[in-house]
């Protein structure tokens, strides 16, 4: 490594210290806004900002008793569950032909499938708004929001599962066939257990994305509210401590879910590794 070089040259050591200092500043920059948000949610000042007049958890109590928030929470979770189901199925199913078949226009198809992540959500939102209201004459509802969100979240499942399929030893499947397994059995006992961690991670990822999704939902939700939409409508009138508390709760939920998305698949993988041994015994 370059370590020896730095010891020789004092200038190198200085550069290194400066870079480390920069990194510290960056972590402060990244976390200060979020930490402050949480701090303010416990601040008894009713304007939700400085000065800190004392510590309280009453804003959290208000969050739990606000019926609008409870409504929004129900809608949010309902939408998130539906989006997760749709995205997981569509994304997993599409990963197979994407990885395994010799497609014509393969790169074109691949780009189309990943495009919804790349282009601004605003474009997805307004284009679906036009489709639903002007062409299909559909009432905007949580269902239209589910469709919009699924367009954006499905590519994530697709990428995760496709990556896993790519690194998947096809001879395992052949071995299963050699031993007399039919297609269903191959899928059930060979392919799915190996893909399960990726699918689970994808599902948790999608659930979190849906929970936090804002811009597409804004256009497609109609008269309902999800939590981000509710927060947005409140923020227009200024910061309130209640919104800070709600925000802190939402932050905690996303972080927990994402942590699960990392930890659970590893656990599943370990569990899956044990299963065939048992079955074989």
């Amino acid at each position: 490594m370059a370590r020896d070089l730095d010891i020789v040259s004092p200038r190198g050591r200085l550069t290194r210290a400066a870079l480390a200092g920069w990194a510290v500043l960056i972590y402060v920059f990244l976390f200060a806004p979020i930490v402050l948000l949480v701090v303010f949610s416990f601040n008894s000042n009713k304007y939700g900002t400085f000065p800190i007049t004392g510590w309280t958890s009453k804003w959290y109590g208000q969050v739990f008793h606000d019926y609008q928030i409870r409504d929004a929470l129900t809608t949010t979770i309902r939408i998130a569950l539906e989006v997760t189901v749709v995205s997981t199925i569509v994304g997993t199913a599409a990963a197979f032909p994407l990885v395994r078949s010799r497609l014509p226009f393969r790169s074109g198809i691949r780009i189309t499938l990943v495009l919804p992540i790349m282009i601004p959500g605003l474009l997805i939102g307004i284009s679906l708004l036009v489709l639903f209201t002007s062409v299909l004459h559909q009432q905007l509802s949580p269902t239209t929001a589910v469709i919009g969100q699924a367009v954006y979240t499905t590519p994530f499942v697709l990428l995760l599962v496709a990556a896993r399929l790519q690194g998947f030893d096809a001879s395992l499947e052949r071995a299963a066939s050699d031993l007399g397994a039919n297609t269903y059995q191959r899928l059930r006992y060979v392919v799915m257990p190996l893909l399960a961690p990726a699918i689970l991670a994808g599902a948790l990822f999608v659930f979190t994305l849906s929970l936090d999704e804002f811009i597409i939902t804004l256009f497609l939700i109609g008269s309902h509210n999800t939590l981000p939409i509710y927060i947005y409508t409140q923020v227009k009138f200024g910061i309130t401590p209640e919104v800070n508390a709600l925000a802190a709760l939402l932050l905690a939920a996303s972080l927990t879910l994402m942590a699960l998305a990392f930890v659970l698949p590893a656990l599943v993988r370990r569990a899956v590794r044990l299963v065939p041994r048992k079955a074989g015994a």
């Binding site: 960056i26 972590y27 990244l30 976390f31 200060a32 806004p33 979020i34 402050l36 948000l37 303010f40 939700g48 900002t49 979190t208 929970l211 936090d212 804002f214 981000p228 927060i231 947005y232 923020v235 910061i239 919104v243 800070n244 925000a247 939402l250 932050l251 996303s254 972080l255 994402m258």
Partner: peptide, 19 residues
Amino acid sequence: VILPFWTSYLLRVYSWLNI
């Protein structure tokens, strides 16, 4: 570094209003 990125986009913008 990615941790804040996993939290709500809306909240990451919102949190700056506090600052």
